[in-house]
Amino acid sequence: MQITPDTLATLNNGFNAAFLQGFNAIGSQGNQYQQVCMEVSSSHRLENYGWMKDLPGVREWIGPRLINNLEATGYQIVNKDWEHTLGIKRPDIEDDILGVFTLAVQQQGDIVGRHPNELVFAQTLLKGFTTTGFDGQYFFDTDHIGYDVNGAETSWSNAGGGSGSPWFLLDLSRTFMRPLVFQMRRAPEFTPLVSPSDPNVFHMNEFLYGVYARYAAGFGFHQLAYGSKQTLDAAAYAAARTALGTQYRPDGSALAVRGTHLVVGPGNEAAARRILLAERDAAGATNIWQGTAEPLIVPQLG
């Protein structure tokens, strides 16, 4: 292949199409993060989430309105820059060794498309036992501020303890409230650097195909999440459901949280399926937990 502006343009278009093919082919399994995250469009370097606090329920309007002020908690999520770059030697382009590189660019699209899963599950959710959320407590902690049925302040735990493989019971029934946040500032963009006058071509005889994006992940509502490293069995699962389901607002009304998804890694997949899908338990009795939540198997959780 003779390297000309026209052939480079054709090559760039083909590689861009290959990148998008790989990026768009990941499907629902590749976009598992979307199931657990509030997706927020960001327009600044960072976004503030001070509004994520407990609000009272609806009250009968007697006398003046009771204004629930949105107090700032100082919780911010800062956008991060991300990149992925492939280098292809100019002689390989000239010699028409393109088929393998088209596959490589498709793989690049797949890798970039799946990165939010890594960011959300491995780098955020798994670190919830040792990283603070908007209330200044660890996201999974034993002494969050909660309320009882009388509206009195109490201590509430969404951490099950233990030291084994982690698992999580999440309420994903609210599209506008989720346990985690995915904040998009700039979607991935495929950019070639292939001009003969570009330093990489001039000095290294190498064409570069890079991707740039800006986004971040962080913690949302801990009230919708329970995390544990205890052995995943029926008793531990029942305790998680009870913890989530017995939460109240500052006025004593029910928060109405229910565990809809049991999120596990491959190591806990069998246990999750026994609890949620089997008709009988180990003793042969009716499995009362069958169908009470959906299993979500996430490779990044191990």
Rank of each mutant, 00 (worst) to 15 (best):
I97F: 11
N158G: 05
T142D: 09
L170A: 12
F190C: 04
D171L: 09
M204Y: 12
S163R: 11
N150D: 14
E94S: 11
Q223M: 00
A216W: 05
Q137L: 05
P116G: 08
Q137I: 00
L193E: 14
F176N: 14
S195I: 06
R186H: 09
Y215P: 01
V194D: 15
A104P: 02
F129S: 04
D171S: 11
G220N: 02
A187C: 01
Y212R: 15
R214G: 07
E189S: 09
T102A: 14
R214F: 07
Y212P: 00
R185V: 01
G109K: 09
D135N: 07
S195T: 07
G162F: 10
Q183H: 04
P192Q: 03
S228G: 08
K89E: 15
S195D: 15
F129G: 07
F134V: 09
L119H: 06
L119A: 13
K89M: 14
T130D: 13
F121S: 06
G161C: 07
N158V: 08
L193A: 14
N150G: 13
K127V: 03
V112K: 02
T131F: 06
T175W: 07
P166W: 14
T102E: 15
V100M: 11
P116V: 11
L126P: 01
F101P: 04
G136F: 00
P116E: 09
D110Q: 13
H144A: 02
F207R: 05
V105L: 08
V211K: 04
I97W: 07
G99I: 12
T142H: 06
F121T: 05
A216I: 00
N200K: 08
K127D: 10
Q137P: 00
L125A: 08
H115S: 12
G146P: 04
G162D: 13
F129M: 02
T142A: 08
L119S: 12
I111T: 14
V100D: 12
R178W: 02
V181R: 09
V100W: 08
F219A: 01
F121K: 04
A104F: 11
E189T: 12
A159K: 13
M204L: 15
L180A: 05
A187R: 07
L208C: 06
R185Q: 13
H115K: 13
T130A: 15
V120K: 03
D135V: 00
Q106A: 06
G109H: 07
G218A: 01
D141F: 04
A104Y: 08
